[in-house]
Nucleic acid binder design. Sequence first.
DNA 1: ACCTGAACACCGTTCAAGT
DNA 2: ACCTGAACACCGTTCAAGT
Lengths: 217, 217
Amino acid sequence: MEVALSIDDREGFDGVTIRAIAGEIGATPMALYTYFSDKSALCDGMRDRLFVQISDGIVSRRSWQSMLEGIARGAYRILRDHPNWTPLLAHDGGLPSSGFGFINDLWESMLKEGFAVEDAMRAHGCVMSFAVGSVLFERTMMGAGDVLAKRIALLKRPVESTPGQYASLASVAAKVDRWRWDDIFEPGIRSRLTGVEANCARSRRQSGRPRASRAQA
Amino acid sequence: MEVALSIDDREGFDGVTIRAIAGEIGATPMALYTYFSDKSALCDGMRDRLFVQISDGIVSRRSWQSMLEGIARGAYRILRDHPNWTPLLAHDGGLPSSGFGFINDLWESMLKEGFAVEDAMRAHGCVMSFAVGSVLFERTMMGAGDVLAKRIALLKRPVESTPGQYASLASVAAKVDRWRWDDIFEPGIRSRLTGVEANCARSRRQSGRPRASRAQA
DNA sequence: ACCTGAACACCGTTCAAGT
DNA sequence: ACCTGAACACCGTTCAAGT
């Protein structure tokens, strides 16, 4: 699994072949079929490892706020550090089983704090969508080149080929090489988290349900 | 291109082979190489068509608000209707050239209305990340099965196999079959859009720059 | 410029055979 | 249970050849 992810990192998702993995661990391609039924199962395993790496970075699990923040930041950071892993997100399979424990704890904590079930999903979705969507947005907007220079070139190329046609695009492209994407992500994730917290408080007031535990907030 | 997207729809992304496309349009595989240099160029073309389909559904381009709302809703709706197209998002290549005109118009309108360049990117990213991230979140959470039943099964399976272990997961899973994801997405996108508008107003006050045109607001 | 058909180097996977 | 090696049906792509 680790070998597969490391190949993905270096060669891209298309480079992850059963033959390549086998070669790297010094075995025959068919030897791997003892451990995975087929390639789709191998991708499931990679998704599993991805989720583990994301949740491993979470610093605190004492409140739903810190868990939600941790899982969102982790997803963003890991996918930014390993852009070639993003195709794993688009694959089928649902939440990997390695994530059941964490998600269960997160939801338990949210429900305990007064979230309605649908509001918990809404909050969870709001924050996580922003995190993984940010990675996709940066890639879609700026391209997925390894070096920033390539991204700038991608955005500037059409502008230069037809001067004046895309004036606003050009004015943004001119600034892009001085951007730190974290400065875009950071206020965004903060804003989502405070918004979610405000919704929780309001939902608690409406339902008249008190907090289960003051200590966690 | 349309044939490629239709195969993607029916057979999944892995089914999109040069041989399959050629067979469907009644030609030899090698005949396609007159129109695409290689498979990566073919994927670029598919991304291009995807963007065109998304922006075709935009109802009004009179204000940056309606453009931003339109592109976000379009991305969400198209990807929900064609889940097998999501892998195209994870591919490299940057913004397809068919999107230059629209994005240029959007940014021009935002800059005119008083957004700083970085704030325009922030707002654009906030709304679009939520839209495409929502699709991914629903797939990651619920799996990508065609039928809702399969999604429920995916979430319920671990719960049933180890009863009581994931109580909160189970309580959410029990409600999932009555959910309409649009009811999660709808308030989310509304909230993002009003938030962005508030930020624009504040940014305009801070810079002391007046609106370029009252009519557009 | 556009299309063909044979060929090449790859891929996931099956199968029969070994330990 | 675990591993091998040959084989099969596929894939993207090259190449020489045709119009």
